[in-house]
Simulated assay, not measured.
Amino acid sequence: MIPLMLLDTADLPDGGTLRLMRRGNDHFILFGRNELMSSRLKGSEEALASLSCAPLKDRSGARVLIGGLGMGFTLRAAQALLNRTAHIVVAELVPKILEWAQGPLAHLFHDSLSDPRLSVRLEDVRDSLLAAAQGGSATGYDAILLDVDNGPDGLIHLANDWLYGAAGLRAARAALRPGGMLAIWSAYDDPAFTDRLSRAGFAVDPVKVRATGGRKGAHHMIWLARKP
C-alpha cells in the first residue's frame, strides 16, 4: 500500500490544525479525521461554480465572490465560464492555503492565480460580505459561492456558524445584486438549512450532485438561493 505522507500543516484561528497529505499522486486536506478536500473528488466543487456562474457567462462586468480557495476546482470552473470582463474575488481565511496553491498544489491550480480577472484576499469571507453589503450595488456581487466548511455549520471555524445563521444570510442577501445567486456547498443534506434560506428571503433550490462529477459515488449538496 502507498503510504500517506504529511506535507505541511496550517493552524486555524479558532485552534485546530489542517494537514496537507499526499498518497501517490493524490492530495488531501484533513481536519482531524475529516477529509475536507481531495484531488480525487472535484465534481461537486466544479458544480458549485457551473450551477451558479453559467447564467453569467454573457454578462458584462459580472462580479463573483468565492469563499474558500480550496484546491482551486471551483475557481477554475468559474474562470472557464465567465467572460473576460468579469471580476472574481476569492476570500481565503488561512494564508497557508494560498501558499499551498503556489507550492505543492500548484499543479492543480495551473495558471488560475495569474488570471487578471482575479483578486485573492486573505480575509474572512464574513468581512467580504459585510463590505459588499454596505457598499450597495457598485460593490455587490452577481454570485456568491461559499465552500468554507464541511456543511452549514462551523466545524473547522466556529465563526462560520454566523455565515449560515440568520445574520450571515441577511448579509449575503444584501451583498447580492438583484437577481443574484448565493450558492453553498455541503458534504451532506440539511433540510433545516433549506428552511432557513427561505426564511431569509431567498428562492431556494437544493441540488444533489455527485462528488466525483460522474454517475456513481457519494452525493454532496449545493443550495442555490436566488435573491428576488
Rank of each mutant, 00 (worst) to 15 (best):
V125G: 07
D124I: 03
Y164T: 06
S198T: 15
S186E: 12
E45I: 05
P13S: 06
H219A: 15
L69I: 15
G154K: 07
P152H: 14
S60Y: 09
N83V: 13
R84E: 15
L7S: 00
R63H: 14
A78D: 09
G213N: 04
L108K: 00
S186V: 11
T17M: 07
V204H: 10
N160K: 06
S198N: 14
G217C: 08
R40W: 02
L129T: 04
S137D: 09
D115Q: 12
I88V: 15
R210S: 14
G136Y: 02
I97R: 03
R59H: 07
D115P: 11
A171L: 09
M221P: 01
G217V: 10
R117P: 08
E123K: 03
D58E: 15
E99P: 00
D11Y: 00
V94Q: 07
L75Q: 08
F73Q: 05
E123Q: 14
L51G: 07
T9C: 05
A174G: 08
F193W: 15
A138Y: 01
G68H: 07
I29Y: 01
G213F: 11
M1W: 06
S50Q: 13
T9E: 10
L20G: 01
F202D: 09
L75Y: 11
G180E: 03
P55A: 06
S112V: 14
D153H: 15
N25D: 09
P95L: 08
I88H: 02
S112W: 10
L98G: 02
S198C: 13
F193V: 07
Q102C: 10
A54L: 06
D58S: 13
L129H: 05
V148P: 00
G68D: 12
M221K: 11
A174C: 05
S112T: 13
R196E: 15
L81S: 04
L197C: 13
L169C: 11
L65K: 00
D124S: 10
R22T: 01
R33W: 02
L7H: 04
D127F: 13
T17W: 01
T85Q: 08
L197D: 11
A138G: 08
L69Y: 11
R170S: 14
R40S: 05
A47W: 01
N150W: 15
E123D: 07
K42D: 12
L163P: 09
P104N: 07
V94T: 12
L108H: 10
M37F: 14
L4I: 10
L98Y: 09
G136F: 10
S137W: 05
S39Y: 04
R170G: 02
L6Q: 06
L18Y: 05
S128C: 07
L7C: 02
L158K: 14
G24S: 05
L93W: 04
L224E: 04
P3S: 03
V125Q: 01
S44E: 04
R23E: 02
Q102K: 15
W162I: 08
H219Q: 13
R23I: 00
D58K: 14
F73I: 05
L93A: 08
L48H: 00
L4P: 00
R33I: 08
G24P: 03
L18E: 04
